[in-house]
Design a protein around this nucleic acid. Structure first.
Lengths: 338, 338
DNA sequence: ATGAAAGCGCTAACAA
DNA sequence: TTGTTAGCGCTTTCAT
C-alpha cells in the first residue's frame, strides 16, 4: 500500500504538493499536478481516509439513517442518496433503527458520535427531543427526507395537496362515495408517514359539497396485507359500498385491488382504486397513483447536504423544501357504475 | 467534544490508561477502569474513529456490497448483517453496484481502497478477475453470501438440493406435468442468482421417471411481472397445460398466481404453484415455498467475518458453508385435478 | 499496572 | 507555487 510519501518521492515533490494536487485544495502548477497524478496512478495510491480525516476534520462520508430497510420507500431513498453521494466522492454509512430501543440509543450515543461522518440524512424519522439534541451535538449538517425535525432542513411532501389531488381525481370522474384508507395512529407515532393525508381527502370532499362519512374511513399499516383486509371491510357490505377507494400508499392500494378481485368485483368497473407513491409494482397492477419519486428525494437531499458542507457558503436553503409529485392515471380508476 | 486527554485528566490517569480501559486491550486495575469509565461517561466521551483507526489500523467498520438495494433479498441480507454488526460495535459502509460501469469501477479502485473498512461482505455478486484481485489487494477478510468467489469464504445455497426438494414436493402430490420458471441466462452473468436451479428440477423429474419437456421450461427476471408473463405463456395453451409450476423465486411465483387468476384458473385446484425464497409476501399469497432466510444469512456472514477479524485465531472455517432452507407448505399446492 | 513518548499518514499554516 | 513542519487524537511499545 503506497503512502503519500511514496508518491511524493516518485513525483519528485513534497508530500504537501501531493496532497494539494490530489485534493484540489491549494495552488499547484500544471507540471507538478501531472507528475503527481502520474505517480499516484502508477502506485495505485489512494489516500487513507482515517489519516486524511484526522488531519482535516473531513471524512468524505455521510450517514444515512432509516427506520427500516425492508420497505420499498426507504430503500429507494437510500439508493438515490447513495448514488448521488458516490458521484460526489462520498462513502455512505448506514444507520438502521429497526432494532431494539437499546440499539437505537446506541446509534445516537455511540455510533453517531465517533466522528465518522461529515453530515447526515434522515429518512421518515421522528426523533425524540433527546435524539434531536444528540443530532445537533454532532455539529454537522443534517437533512431530513420527510419531516419535519426541529432545526433540520427537511424535504417534505405536501400531504394535504397530494391527497386533495387524489380525491379530486376521483371526484372529477363522478365519484361521490369515496372511501379512504389511512395510516393508523400508533404507526404515526414512530415515523413521519402521515396519517394526516386524511385532511386533504376530507377537505376535497367538503369542497365538493360532500360530507365525509366515518364508515368510509379505515386504517391500515401501509402494507399490501393491511390494505387487503381494510378493503375487505369497506367493500364487504353491499348496501354501504363505496364506488372508489383512495389509499394512502400504493402497497395498500394493491391490497385493495386484490381484495376487490377476491370479492368478485371488477376494477375499475365496479370499484375505482388509487394510491400514493409510485411504487415499482403500481404499473404492473395498472394502479392510478400520485407518484413521488423516493430516488429523486434521496438525490435532492444529497444536493442540499453538499451545499451545506461547503464551508464559506451560507446557503439560502429554506427550512423545508417541497417534494415533487405527479398524478399518474392508469386503469384502476374510471367513472363510477351506471 | 471531549478528547481522550480530557478524560485522562478528569480520571487522574494517563491517556494510555484511558485507551486501555476503554478498549479492553492491555491490563488495567479495577480502580483505574472505574475512574476512567466514570469520567468518560461524565464527559460523553466517544473515541474518534479516525484517530483510533490511524493509530491502530482497525476501523470498526465493515463494508457491505450489494448489486442492488431495491430487491427484497438483498435488502434483507443487508438488514440482517447490519444488525449483527451493530451488536459487535461495527459501523456499516454500504457499497451499491447498481450504478454505471464507471461507478462500479470507482467502487473497487477508490472507495474500497481508502482503508475505511476492516472487512467486507459481498452479496450475490459475481466479480470479474480484476475485481477479485482488487478485493484481495485490500488484504482484509471477505465473506460472500451467495457464492462462490475465488479465494473468498462464501455462504452458498445448495440450489440442486433446493430445487429437487421443491420438485419432489410436487411429484409427491402426484403431479407429472410440472413446469419450471428459471432465471434467464444473461441475468446469471451478472449475479449469483442461479439459473442452475434447473438442474435439480430436471434431476428430480428424471429420478421419478419423467423426461423434462422443453415446452415446460420458461425464463424470467425474478420479478412479479416476469413471472406473470412467463406463466401466461405456460398456461395459455389448454392442450399443453402443466398442472404445476415451480418458479425459481417467490416473486415470480406470485406473478404466476396472479396470471393463473387472470386466466380463470383456481389455485391450487387447477394449478399448483410454488417458489423459492420465503419472501415477505409469500404468506399473504398462501404460497408454498422453500424458504431461505436472507436475514439469517447476513447474520451468519457477520459471525464468520468477526472470527476472521480476530488476529491470533486461525479459523477453521471451510471455504463454503451451506445455507439452511426449509420447505413451507401453504395453500398454493395440492393434488393435481381429477 | 501504569506513564512517557513515538508514531499512524495525512493536511494546513507558515515561510520562502 | 512550493517545501517545512507542527499537529490531528489516538494506540502501543518500552520503561518503570
Amino acid at each position: 500500500m503506497a503512502s503519500i510519501e511514496d508518491v511524493a518521492q516518485r513525483a519528485g515533490v513534497s508530500t504537501a504538493t501531493v496532497s494539494r494536487a490530489l485534493s484540489g485544495n491549494g495552488p499547484v502548477s500544471a507540471a507538478a499536478r501531472l507528475k503527481v497524478t502520474e505517480a499516484a496512478a502508477a502506485l495505485d495510491y489512494v489516500v487513507s481516509s482515517s489519516a486524511s480525516s484526522l488531519a482535516s476534520g473531513r471524512t468524505k462520508n455521510v450517514g444515512l439513517m432509516v427506520p427500516y430497510l425492508t420497505r420499498w420507500f426507504f430503500t429507494s431513498v437510500v439508493e438515490g442518496a447513495q448514488q448521488a453521494l458516490m458521484r460526489h466522492g462520498y462513502d455512505v454509512t448506514l444507520y438502521n433503527l429497526s432494532g431494539s430501543v437499546a440499539e437505537r440509543e446506541k446509534v445516537f450515543d455511540v455510533f453517531l458520535q465517533r466522528k465518522r461522518i461529515d453530515g447526515i440524512i434522515t429518512v421518515s424519522l421522528k426523533l425524540s427531543p433527546t435524539e434531536v439534541q444528540r443530532l445537533h451535538a454532532l455539529d454537522r449538517p443534517a437533512v431530513g427526507v420527510g419531516g419535519p425535525i426541529d432545526g433540520v432542513r427537511t424535504l417534505t411532501l405536501d400531504d394535504d395537496a397530494v391527497s386533495s389531488l387524489a380525491t379530486g381525481h376521483l371526484l372529477a370522474l363522478g365519484h361521490t362515495k369515496i372511501a379512504h384508507i389511512g395510516g393508523s395512529e400508533d404507526y404515526d407515532l414512530e415515523f413521519h408517514i402521515p396519517t394526516n393525508r386524511r385532511h386533504g381527502y376530507e377537505a376535497a370532499l367538503r369542497e365538493a359539497g360532500i360530507e365525509p362519512r366515518p364508515e368510509f374511513f379505515a386504517t391500515a399499516d401501509f402494507t399490501i396485507q393491511g390494505g387487503y383486509h381494510a378493503a375487505k371491510q369497506l367493500l364487504g357490505n353491499p348496501l354501504l359500498r363505496p364506488t372508489a377507494i383512495f389509499a394512502s400508499s400504493d402497497e395498500m392500494a394493491i391490497g385493495c385491488i386484490l381484495a376487490a378481485r377476491d370479492l368478485g368485483l371488477v376494477v375499475p368497473r365496479d370499484i375505482s382504486i388509487m394510491g400514493i407513491d409510485g411504487h415499482e409494482l403500481s404499473e404492473f397492477f395498472g394502479l392510478t397513483t400520485v407518484s413521488q419519486s423516493p430516488q429523486a428525494q434521496g438525490e435532492h437531499a444529497v444536493e442540499i447536504l453538499m451545499n451545506l458542507l461547503v464551508p464559506g457558503k451560507h446557503p439560502e436553503i429554506p427550512e423545508n423544501s417541497p417534494i415533487d409529485y405527479e398524478l399518474i392515471v392508469r386503469s384502476s380508476t374510471s367513472r363510477p357504475p351506471e
